[in-house]
Write a protein that binds this DNA or RNA. Sequence first.
RNA 1: GGGGGAAUUCCAGAGCGGCCAAAUGGGCCAGACUGUAAAUCUGGUGGCGAAGCCUUCGCAGGUUCGAAUCCUGCUUCCCCCA
Length: 405
Amino acid sequence: MQFPPVEEQLALIRRGVEKIVPENELAEKLKQSRDSGKPLRVKYGIDPTGVDLHLGHTVPMRKMRQFQELGHQAVIIIGNYTALVGDPSGRDETRARLTAEQVEANAVDYLNQLSKVLDLDKAEVVRNGDWFSAMNFAEMLELCSKVTVAQLLTRDDFSQRFKEETAIYLHECLYPIMQAWDSVKIAADIELGGTEQLYSFMLARDLQRDQKMSCQIGVMSPILVGLDGIRRMGKSLGNYIGIGESAYEMMKKFMQVPDDCMKMYFELLTDLPLDQVDGLLAGHPKEAKTTLAKTIITEYHDAAHADEAAARWQREIGGGGLPADIPVATISRADLKEEAVPAAILLKLAGLCQSTGEARRSIKQGGAYIGEDKQRIEQDQTITPENGMMLWVGKKRFCRLEVSD
RNA sequence: GGGGGAAUUCCAGAGCGGCCAAAUGGGCCAGACUGUAAAUCUGGUGGCGAAGCCUUCGCAGGUUCGAAUCCUGCUUCCCCCA
């Protein structure tokens, strides 16, 4: 196996990486691998907890793909056993636990999604249940005896929870130990993950050293911020872009990302050369953002869909024209007490508002409109519903009426 | 095993007999401003074809003219001591 020169590899690996620990050993590992023609074993573990992967997950996954492109061996660990615990990293509370059935269903689904970013044919995929389910209690005791409580409490998240007197369960303490043991079982040279994984990564080195193995190097990506530009991208925060979303959904979300985050997104989510990125960022922000969106959307769909999504966004949202597909709301004459109904009632019947109270509020605040030309609906206005009538609440909710008898 | 504390509207968190559909902050929705981005500012944020009425403060009872607030039991959670 012929690998690119070490410096070249390092340059690619360092892109968008926050921390490499220990930094100085990486070049050495790469050199040994190049000299011997033996690929490095690069570990990335994922717990099949949720269902939908989002761009935040793809940051280490993309890093893995870069390693694959350099010729190294990807080892994907499906944490079907660690998922039963729940990763406490960066959390201020205990995670909900899953059943084995849920985990297995998620695992299959995850592999499917992973294949959008990684070349799974060239990757080793293993489940950590393979070794943990076979472990007996004595072996587990042996493993636990390698770690002290004081070590565990050096972790920020645990020590903070300890101080704040929120619960820390014993099984959570096992999580980093299990994750570290995975590294031993697969003989990892490198582990990929976010910066919050530091503790587990270091523990893996300790266990590997204890087993007289070569110690892994942690390559840690920064945490991707979500659409709000402040908090980490996460499903529970609702500020994410899922990799299974449609091109247009992605487009809409990308365009509402704060400008300040673009650089991070370019660096972590695309392969565009960084000097080219700087050039884009020096130009009009909207252009840069559109390029960003199209580049990433192309990865999950294709260039044609990306262009189409961008054009549609410009037409409907950027330009203020009529949306391309307008949902149709069917209302029945039977629901109407008379021909002309109060506007609030109509908005609720059309499904634009969840309650008449909400509809009243929207109207009162000038956020409800009628007709192709978006005439503002006045308070106390009554409307005679007609087929094809356009109704709006705010900028994003709209529909065309269909009146049935 | 013993002791202490807590459960409030989407979330966090006030309220501790009537002035409570319930402070404040976050989120969310709308308006203004913009590049229909973000930030900022303003308003809103249980339901009812809206007068007034109805349902909400862990669950079930009780005391009171009146209870989110007091009492009893139950459930769940947290902390401390052993």
